[in-house]
Design a protein around this nucleic acid. Sequence first.
DNA 1: TTCTGCAATAGAGAAACCATATCGCTTTGC
DNA 2: GCAAAGCGATATGGTTTCTCTATTGCAGAA
Lengths: 294, 294
Amino acid sequence: MLAKLEMFLALSKEQHFGRAAQSLGITQPTLSTGLKQLEDQLGVQLVRRGSRYGGLTPEGQRALTWARQIVGDARRLREEMRFSREGLAGHLRLAVIPTALTWASRLAAGFSARHPNVAFTILSRNSAEIFTMLDNLESDAGLSYLDNEPLGRVSTVELYRETYTLVCAPDHPLAARAEIGWDELSGSRLCLLTPDMQNRRIVNAAFRAAGCEPVALMESNSTVVLVSHVATGAWVTVLPGDLAHFLASGKGLAIVPIRGAAPGHAVGLVAPWQEPHTPVLQALLDEAAELAND
Amino acid sequence: MLAKLEMFLALSKEQHFGRAAQSLGITQPTLSTGLKQLEDQLGVQLVRRGSRYGGLTPEGQRALTWARQIVGDARRLREEMRFSREGLAGHLRLAVIPTALTWASRLAAGFSARHPNVAFTILSRNSAEIFTMLDNLESDAGLSYLDNEPLGRVSTVELYRETYTLVCAPDHPLAARAEIGWDELSGSRLCLLTPDMQNRRIVNAAFRAAGCEPVALMESNSTVVLVSHVATGAWVTVLPGDLAHFLASGKGLAIVPIRGAAPGHAVGLVAPWQEPHTPVLQALLDEAAELAND
DNA sequence: TTCTGCAATAGAGAAACCATATCGCTTTGC
DNA sequence: GCAAAGCGATATGGTTTCTCTATTGCAGAA
């Protein structure tokens, strides 16, 4: 039954019998009959078929929620038992918004120092993707904005609040300023994150609140691209102060605080809400709480 | 794996391999090897053994929490799929504190009128037992006091607030009173619920708040016993108004409101907190919410 | 000590599982 | 239109897993 639910999850993710089977290390006929048995046991059709995968039925959609819960808990059970054998060990998968990547490193480094047997995978993702990955059991925790997110379904630990700064070449006209307003940036050649990133939407909102429209002549989903463009001289970008200092250091770039951007959006650790948490995850939450207090 | 977890749950409940096996409709060797395989898969010993069942190990204790969650969700999945086949049908098991039994009937009757294919089992239990049964998947919902209970782990719908009344024979010295104080009862021959009942603890507290000690010369865990004793003439008891009227009707017993007992403890429906609720349970919560509004 | 109740183990038959091979249908490309 | 390719269902057989009966081993009680 649990194996069948795993098959169902894989199928709903891959949307393709062959690939789903492959992802589980079984053959397509096995998955095909497995799903059929699951449907028989539940007495409902879960997947629409007509010589192709045709999406989930409404019942399948509902079942998917339960399947995720059940399979997720089963994995957490195994992990917790492994913990009681081997102590804190295993693999933590984090999905992180680009502007929080340095904090992810800080968090992971601190954690690793205490629990050297835990391996990390840190993926850069936008905030919507982060929550999808948590739902799909593809990541264990994330670093993302804590505002306007479906709280109640996740545990959160606030790490810091973003403050925005301008990054530009040292010979740029704005580089000498002690402070600058959002409205003064509209004349510059702006590099900004792509609109699927929440950071970009926040920056957009800040521009509009200052009465001007943000025009990004250059967009990327990578902050490295933004800063390397700025380093070519003609461009400017807006980044959270922390990340700006990290990326600009050693390149002689200027960093100018932006006025009225002081107590920005909260960023922190998010993890699926569970009662109780798995030991590794609990340790991560503790680590984050400690990091936030420094 | 799921089957193994069921075995584990049954064993932890029955504390005996043979009985646990019987309760699952399998033989003792099957359960024995099943549990061994579960332990092998998890790599941990879950049960202490030495030619006898010797209780759970600490790991087993932790695993039990997850097992309950997983098995419970699997059952809920099956039930929800059955719902999408057959509409609202099945079996609801309620555990109810004795003083709320009339409300349980009211709730079940209303629900049954709307959803005639749902069968009910209503058990009278004390409030501690109710929460144990919810945890152990032995009941689907309960009616109990909502104060000082582990909220957050349960969904609740308040139904009413208890007000306390004195029940006595019509020729009893107190029967003619329009109202009475707690302190005036200490001279009477009191029948009260047993101390494991939360209602009794509330009554005790009310007595003590009035400056006197409650002395129950007769205790029972059944309100029927209390009232039938009162009907013999020499005794009095304290019951919530609703139940007092129900049990005393037709017996010529007197019911006297007790002063200062006005907005008493909240009583309502409690159900395991789940996201989302199963359709039958959701319908029950809706029914309770409606009943509360009348 | 013997007896009794409990859980583990052995062994055999049944059931479930999973892979290879293949079919039927749909879509795609020419 | 037709051939080719992609996709999922089905058939079949070998292997594993499951679960039963029968039995053994062990500890506490008489």
